[in-house]
Design a protein around this nucleic acid. Structure first.
Lengths: 136, 136
DNA sequence: TTTAATGTAACAATTTTTGTTACATTAAAA
DNA sequence: TTTTAATGTAACAAAAATTGTTACATTAAA
């Protein structure tokens, strides 16, 4: 992950959690993060598919949290934005004539999964509510 | 991490560990990974700085492990290639006029460090020797 | 009917990653 | 002493990933 998607998604959810019951629009959210509103809408769309937020169109449109911030754990956010593994990518075509090259990607699969799982587990222990409570 | 550097570095070290006492050259290693020899030399240079390999120039030049594969843990490799945090990047300039935007990067610092630390810890429990032993 | 929002496609710009060429330096071997 | 075969590294090119932007159809309240 060499991008800002987790930071952006968590920022969005933090704003929504900090003002529950209000429909925040993408322009307002974008101004807080300092990115383009389209970036926010794109991420909101994915967070919506994951059941973390509700969005509505039309005048007075915007977004709210879909569930209580205490029930949202950070692994759910991570899974929405994750598009690579913690240890990165495998090399595409290691040499099949080399005993190591022949099977290294299978060994890396195991290792990469193990590490990813431990990150997920750690994130699962942290709630959005707790994260938000750190702001004072 | 959305790159192949960890996979490449571990591949290199696996080859060296699998034929200790031999000086493998970058062209040979590169053929196993299927990348350009310069990529291998670049990574070997960094692995050398970290004390994981020895390299020598001249005819009969090449690389060997600098220490026993049982004493090399995977966190050492990760630290050599790591150039981003597990949860990615922060947004560059969140709005200082927003209570959330004002301090979110400090909160993210804490979270990102915690997650990175847990990955390091997990990798520290795994040795190169053990990884190599999985090939059969 | 007007206004103000989302949803999303299409594309542009930027940054990161990977690949390549070139060559100075080193050290063994002929 | 010259040739050979390697590393080390700079400089640049190419490809891929990331981020930003414009445009506009759709929706729903006012």
């Amino acid at each position: 992950m060499n991008n800002t998607r987790f930071a952006t998604a968590l920022h969005i959810l933090t704003l929504l959690a900090a003002s529950e019951e209000e429909w925040l629009n993408s322009e307002w959210i974008a101004a807080s993060i300092n990115v383009n509103p389209v970036v926010v809408r794109r991420e909101l769309s994915l967070l919506g598919e994951a059941g973390l937020v509700n969005t509505r169109k039309g005048k007075t449109g915007g977004a709210t949290l879909a569930r209580n911030s205490a029930s949202i754990t950070l692994d759910a956010i991570y899974l929405v934005v994750k598009n690579s593994e913690v240890l990165g990518k495998r090399n595409v075509k290691p040499n099949p004539n080399c005993p190591i090259g022949k099977t290294i990607n299978q060994q890396l699969d195991n290792l990469f999964s193990t590490i990813d799982d431990s990150v997920i587990k750690e994130l699962k222990s942290k709630t959005l509510k707790n994260f938000v409570s750190e702001f004072h």
